[in-house]
Amino acid sequence: MTPDSPRTGSVRTDARGSESPRKQPRSRLRVWSGFARAYALANLQSALEYRVSFATQVFAMMLNDGMWLVFWLAYFDKFQVVEGWGRADIVTLWAVVAASFGLATTVCGNLFRLAGLIVRGELDIYLALPKPVLPHMLMSRMSVTAPGDVLFGVIGFGLLVHPTPGQWILFLSSILTGSIIFVAFGVVSQSLSFWLGNAEGVAEQLTNALINFSTYPTPIFRGVVKLALFTLLPAGFIAYLPVQLFREFTWLRLAALWGVAALALTLAVMVFRAGLRRYESGNLVLTRQ
C-alpha cells in the first residue's frame, strides 16, 4: 500500500494496545462525505466569525463576474459574431468557466494556497493525520464565497441561454470536467514549490493566465498559442471544448473531454506525490486559519 492510499480493513486499538476489529465498517463514500460535511461546517463557522467581511466578499465576487459579462454583452450589441462565436456561445463560455472555477475553489479552497503551504512547512499537520494528504489538504479549506461564482454561472446560463434539459446535463458535465482540470492544473503549478522553493508568484501567474485564456473564445488564438492552450495551459479543455459540444455534440468529444480531465488529475496526483518526497517541512510558528 502506498503512503497516501486510504486504509482498508482497519482495526481499532484500545488503551492497553490490544487490537480488535472495528464493529461496523463504513463505506468509503460515507466516510468521505461525513468528512467533507464536517469541514464545510467548520469553514462556514470560521467565515461567519467575520460576517461583514464574508458578505462583502460574496458581493464583490458577483460584481466582478457580472461586469465582465456586461462587457461581452455590450460587445455583441455592436458586433454580432467573433470568429464564428455568437452571444450564446460567449455566455456559455463564461458560465462554464465561472461555475467550474467556483466549484473547484468551493470544494478545494486550499488549491491556490498549496505553494505557500509547502514553503512554510504547513503540510505537517495533514501528514500527521490518517488521511491521504492531497484531498485532505485541498478540502480542509473551503471557500464559502466561491459558491457565488457557481451561482453566477448557473443563473447566467439559465437566463441568457434558455437551455433544454439535455443542455443542462451537458452544462453540469462541463462544470465537472472544468473544475477537475482547474484542480489538476492548480496542484501541478503550486507543486512547483517542492522543486523551486518559493513558487507562489509563478503559480499565481500561471493560474491567472489559465483563467484569462479560458474566458476568451479560443478561435481568436492561432499557432503556438493555440497549441499551448491544449497542452501546457489547458484553457481549451475548460471552456472551448465544452462550447464546441454545445454547438455540435458528439459522444467522442464528450469522452475525450472526460479522458483529458482524468489524465490531468492522474498527472497532478503523480506530480504531488513525487514532490512530497522532497518536502522539507519547516519550523515557523503556525496556527490553522
Partner: peptide
C-alpha cells in the same frame, strides 16, 4: 509551535472534526 486547532473556532469544533 504548530497548532492543529482552528484559530477562529472553539477547540470543541476541532475535536468534532
Amino acid at each position: 509551535q504548530r497548532s492543529q486547532l482552528w484559530f477562529h473556532l472553539p477547540a470543541g469544533e476541532t475535536f468534532d472534526l
